[in-house]
Amino acid sequence: MDGSVWMQFVWAFLVGGAICVIGQIMLDVFKMTPAHTMTSLVVAGAILGGFGWYDMLIEFAGAGASVPITSFGNALVHGALDEAKDKGLVGVITGIFQVTSAGISAAIIFSFLASLFFKPKG
């Protein structure tokens, strides 16, 4: 592996960690509930996505930006915008889940299967 690959890991770690710190500050300092924190981050990701800024962050930090939940809001916007380019305004509705389908489907399917195989712990 050459040096640039190692830098990719370093930036993924630093940027991903920083986004989680923002979440922790919302929880501890602003006393927000986890649900309020997550929804705020997703909405923030959607707004940054609208300006095209979140994609710049992903290009720079890779999984450091695409793994945190903010990227979910960004991906919703990009699904809608890409489809809207081809189909006009109706594409905003039909495209919204285009990119995020993998995440949501995987979470539903794996969680359901887990409920078949595992018993609750603790």
């Binding site: 997550m38 915008l81 809207a84 305004l89 509705i93 359901f112």
Partner: peptide
């Protein structure tokens, strides 16, 4: 299982979709 799976994740999807819808509508217009 079916009824409670989205109890915590639901708000994230609802507000994400509504925010993305508004952003995308403005952007497209």
């Amino acid at each position: 299982v079916g009824g409670n799976m989205f109890k915590v994740a639901g708000p994230v999807i609802v507000f994400g979709v509504v925010a993305a819808f508004l952003v995308a509508i403005v952007h497209t217009l």
